[in-house]
């Protein structure tokens, strides 16, 4: 599992995943917190739940996220 609950992340790029919707383009560059990671099977393809500052809580593909130090 790459992401863990409570980690600060950045939406650093658009994902090519089919779950990426147009409105999510506005999330790029935003910071947030992992709220519910992939809790069952550690699947890199699964969606993780993140709360983004000022933009609410969303399930995003993991390849759009990176952990902030």
């Amino acid at each position: 599992m790459t992401f863990r609950k409570g980690q600060h992340i950045e939406v650093f790029q658009k994902s090519s995943d089919e779950s990426w919707a147009d409105y999510m383009d506005a999330f790029i560059g935003l910071h947030g917190v992992i709220v519910d990671p992939d809790t069952s099977i550690n699947d890199p393809a699964s969606l993780v739940e993140v709360s983004l500052e000022g933009k609410g809580t969303h399930r995003l593909p993991q390849d759009s996220l990176r952990v902030l130090d």
């Binding site: 917190v33 709220v35 519910d36 739940e49 709360s51 500052e53 809580t57």
Partner: peptide
Amino acid sequence: CTRPCEYM
């Protein structure tokens, strides 16, 4: 609840 509110 997984409480996203508390994380923010």
